[in-house]
Amino acid sequence: MGDTVDGLSSKRTVFVTVGTTCFDALVKAVDTLEVKRELSRRGYTHLLIQMGRGTYIPTTSPGEDGSVAVEYFHFSSSIADHLRAASLVISHAGSGSIFETLRLAKPLIVVVNEDLMDNHQSELAEELAERKHLYCAHPQTLPQIIAGLDVESLLPYHPGDATPVAKLINHFLGFPDD
C-alpha cells in the first residue's frame, strides 16, 4: 500500500507537531486506536509526534491490529528534517508550521486548538482550507478528516511575491530603485 522501492514497502511517516506549546488534545487525538487504524488503512506506517510542553504520553507499543508504530519527543532545535521526511503532516495552527509545511508541498491537516483565546490561528487555517491548500480539523473531528483525506485534491500553495510592495515602499521613502 505504501511507496515501494524494489518491491519492498517503504516507511510512510505522519509527523505531528504542536510547536512549543502544550496541545495535549491533539496528541491524545492522534493516539486513539481509531486514528491509528485509519492512518494504517491509508498506508502510513509510522507516527512521529513532537509534543512540546505536553504531559500526555502517547502509546508507543504497536496495536494488536498492526497499526502504525509511534515515536515521540518534546522539542527539537529544528523540525525541518522531520517535515521533509514526512508523507503527511498533522500540525497545530501556528503560522510558522503551516507555511513551512506548505512550502515543502507536504499534505497537511491543521488541528485548531480551541483552548486558545482570540484564536487568529484558526482563521488562517480555515482560510487556507477554503482555498484547498490544507485540511482543517479540531481534535474531535480528526478521525473523520483522516477518513475523508484526499491528498490529490489539495492545491499547491504559491507564496506571494513581496517585491512590488517593497519597491513601492522604497519609492515612497525616497530610496533609489535597484
Score class of each variant (00 low, 15 high):
34 E>N: 03
95 S>Y: 11
65 D>L: 13
131 R>G: 12
104 L>T: 03
90 I>A: 13
72 Y>G: 07
28 K>A: 13
109 I>F: 02
116 L>A: 02
108 L>F: 00
38 E>F: 01
85 A>D: 14
17 T>I: 10
73 F>M: 15
79 I>V: 15
122 S>Q: 14
120 H>C: 01
84 R>M: 10
127 E>N: 11
113 N>S: 08
94 G>L: 00
84 R>I: 11
104 L>Y: 04
83 L>S: 10
73 F>A: 14
27 V>M: 03
53 R>S: 12
55 T>F: 11
99 F>Q: 09
48 L>E: 09
66 G>N: 09
49 I>K: 05
78 S>Q: 12
105 A>R: 07
28 K>P: 03
111 V>F: 08
86 A>R: 05
37 R>G: 01
18 V>E: 12
129 A>D: 05
74 H>S: 15
20 T>E: 11
50 Q>M: 07
4 T>Q: 14
51 M>V: 01
111 V>C: 03
98 I>S: 04
112 V>W: 06
94 G>M: 02
16 V>K: 04
119 N>Q: 01
22 C>A: 15
6 D>V: 01
36 K>D: 05
77 S>L: 11
13 T>S: 10
56 Y>S: 07
114 E>W: 10
117 M>Q: 13
95 S>H: 09
131 R>A: 14
49 I>N: 02
53 R>M: 13
59 T>A: 14
121 Q>L: 07
50 Q>P: 10
49 I>E: 00
7 G>T: 00
37 R>K: 12
45 T>D: 02
8 L>R: 15
19 G>L: 05
59 T>S: 13
12 R>H: 04
15 F>M: 05
10 S>E: 11
35 V>Y: 05
26 L>N: 08
49 I>L: 03
15 F>T: 03
69 A>K: 14
30 V>R: 03
56 Y>Q: 05
104 L>H: 05
102 L>Q: 02
90 I>L: 09
42 R>Q: 15
110 V>N: 05
49 I>T: 03
124 L>S: 01
93 A>I: 04
33 L>T: 06
66 G>S: 10
85 A>L: 04
62 P>R: 15
35 V>K: 04
80 A>Y: 12
102 L>A: 03
31 D>F: 00
41 R>P: 00
47 L>H: 00
76 S>E: 13
117 M>H: 12
17 T>Q: 06
4 T>I: 07
82 H>W: 10
31 D>C: 02
123 E>K: 13
33 L>C: 04
118 D>H: 15
29 A>Q: 01
92 H>T: 06
67 S>C: 11
87 S>F: 10
68 V>H: 09
93 A>L: 08
51 M>A: 12
53 R>F: 01
59 T>C: 08
74 H>G: 10
117 M>A: 15
25 A>G: 09
77 S>W: 09
23 F>V: 02
82 H>D: 13
90 I>M: 05
68 V>M: 12
63 G>N: 07
19 G>K: 08
111 V>K: 10
46 H>F: 00
18 V>W: 02
88 L>I: 04
34 E>K: 08
77 S>V: 08
128 L>A: 01
11 K>W: 00
95 S>V: 11
18 V>H: 11
89 V>S: 07
